[in-house]
Amino acid sequence: MTEHAFSPAERRAIYRVIAERRDMRRFVPGSEVSEEVLVQLLRAAHAAPSVGLMQPWRFIRITDAGLRRDIHAIVDEERLRTAEALGSRSDEFLALKVEGILECAELFVVALGDGRQAHIFGRRTLPQMDLASVSCAIQNLWLAARAEGLGMGWVSIFDPRRLAQLLDIPDDAEPVAILCLGPVPDFPDRPALEIDKWTVGRPLSEFVAENRWAAPAPIVGWST
């Protein structure tokens, strides 16, 4: 602990919002998010770290009902293709609810911005750091939404070229996420994909090593 630490109550709140964040698919139909809260959430996203301070994120708020339906159609087509690619788990996948595009209060498309190739700082050998930076912005938005009592779901089941054409996104930009945002009936105590028995989250100990890739890092508390 250092003199720069937040208070115990503030620290507990930070860890709680991280632990209770969920990828949400079910929303309260007909609900709204105030403009004031939306601005706060987007400011939180915009405060994310980015390599070389390039700020590669672009947020497109979808307020046109027709566009929302078109985006849903693009996602649903890819949902069927994904099911086909899953082979023996096809029916199991089709039974999952994988998005809340038509029900959520707010819909955003997040894209990698145009002109990214001009940013070399931190990307010369790792050009994918632009996507890493956008992911940080999405995570900031996600955590801020949870703190406000709102749910958010990240939808990645779509053809980026079709979505880009639909939204007039420039050729050197790229959509990477559809975000469903709004009030939800509840927040489950476990990830939805665990509840739906699609998969099970693995413990931290399987993802931490010491000095070399396969050398376990035996630290107390990392087994869960």
Rank of each mutant, 00 (worst) to 15 (best):
W142L: 03
T125G: 12
F108H: 04
D172Y: 02
A85Q: 13
A145F: 03
S133V: 11
C104D: 00
I120N: 10
A145S: 07
M129H: 15
A95L: 10
G113R: 06
I169P: 00
Q117G: 07
G113N: 07
F108Q: 03
G87K: 01
L112G: 01
S133N: 06
F93Y: 15
A164H: 06
R146V: 04
V134L: 03
A144W: 03
L94N: 05
R146W: 00
R124Q: 13
C136L: 08
L143C: 01
S156R: 04
R124H: 14
W142S: 01
R162Q: 12
A85W: 14
L80I: 14
G113I: 09
A137E: 02
E99Y: 06
S90R: 15
S88Q: 13
S135W: 01
G151E: 00
M152H: 05
L80C: 09
A83F: 14
D114C: 13
L181H: 04
S88R: 14
A95K: 10
A177M: 07
A147G: 14
L179Y: 03
A132P: 08
A111G: 10
F93R: 07
N140P: 08
E174P: 02
N140D: 05
N140I: 10
D171K: 12
W154A: 08
E92V: 14
H119I: 15
P175I: 07
C136M: 10
D171M: 08
G115I: 12
P160L: 00
H119N: 10
P127G: 04
D168E: 05
W142M: 02
K97E: 05
P127S: 06
R116T: 15
E78S: 12
Q128V: 13
